[in-house]
């Protein structure tokens, strides 16, 4: 492969991903319309929307990870009330969960504002919420609080929890997730966390465990 082709490939890839994303956008709108026309199929259509949303998010994650590898992904860090982000996540999660699950909020310990990139963190957390939605039996808790001096977003469910293999391994692409996926979502979240560094040079991390109050999997995005 010539050097030119190598440069062309990411550009083509990026353009294709963008195109696919737009198509998915149209698909989502069609599904919205369909859902209004056929209320009896609402549950299936809901499921289709959920999958569409996941595909779309995955596209965006790949694009962002590519930028990250190329060293051009720079977080836009601002002082934001974490409770605001959490409420939006809750709304989104509830609309995806429908009547199937109870999604609740845990945010009393949250600082009034914290420094983070709203969109990147939203992406990382949405991914965790998507996973929780698939594995939870009946409950999901989305939370934000302090962990020492750091800000800690968490997503917990009452499902079976992470298998030991996932907990023992470092987070890396192709590292596989609990459902046998590529682990891209986790890898993405981990990269996002690492882009958040404080003045002392301490950077964020993702922590996975089964130590939450619900007994299932617990995903934590910890930002110093």
């Amino acid at each position: 492969m010539s050097g030119q082709d190598e440069a062309l490939l990411p550009a083509m890839l990026a353009a294709s991903l963008h195109e696919v994303k737009n198509m998915l956008g149209e698909l989502t709108l069609s599904l919205d319309a369909l859902q209004q026309q056929c209320p009896q199929q609402a549950a299936q259509i809901e499921e289709m929307r959920f999958v569409t949303r996941q595909v779309s998010d995955r596209m965006v994650q790949v694009l962002l990870l590519y930028k990250n590898d190329a060293g051009v992904l720079r977080p836009n860090i601002e002082a934001i009330p974490p409770a605001d982000l959490l409420e939006e996540m809750l709304m989104e999660a509830r609309s995806l969960a429908g009547d199937r699950l109870v999604v609740s909020l845990e945010g009393e310990q949250a600082p009034p504002y914290a420094y983070f990139d709203r969109y990147l963190c939203e992406m990382a957390l949405m991914n965790a919420i998507h996973n929780a939605l698939r594995f939870a039996h009946s409950r999901i808790v989305i939370g934000v609080g302090r962990l020492g001096n750091a800000l800690c977003f968490s997503v917990e469910d009452d499902g079976p929890g992470y298998v030991p293999a996932v907990l023992q391994r470092a987070i890396e692409p192709g590292g596989h997730s609990r459902d046998g996926g590529t682990g891209l979502g986790l890898y993405f979240a981990d990269r996002v966390a690492r882009l958040h560094c404080n003045n002392a040079g301490e950077c964020g991390r993702v922590q996975l465990d089964n130590a939450g109050v619900l007994g299932g999997a617990r995903f934590q995005l910890i930002l110093p």
Binding site: A79, P81, A83, D84, P112, Y113
Partner: peptide
Amino acid sequence: ASHPAYMID
């Protein structure tokens, strides 16, 4: 002081 969420703003 009365709106700590927007302190930085």
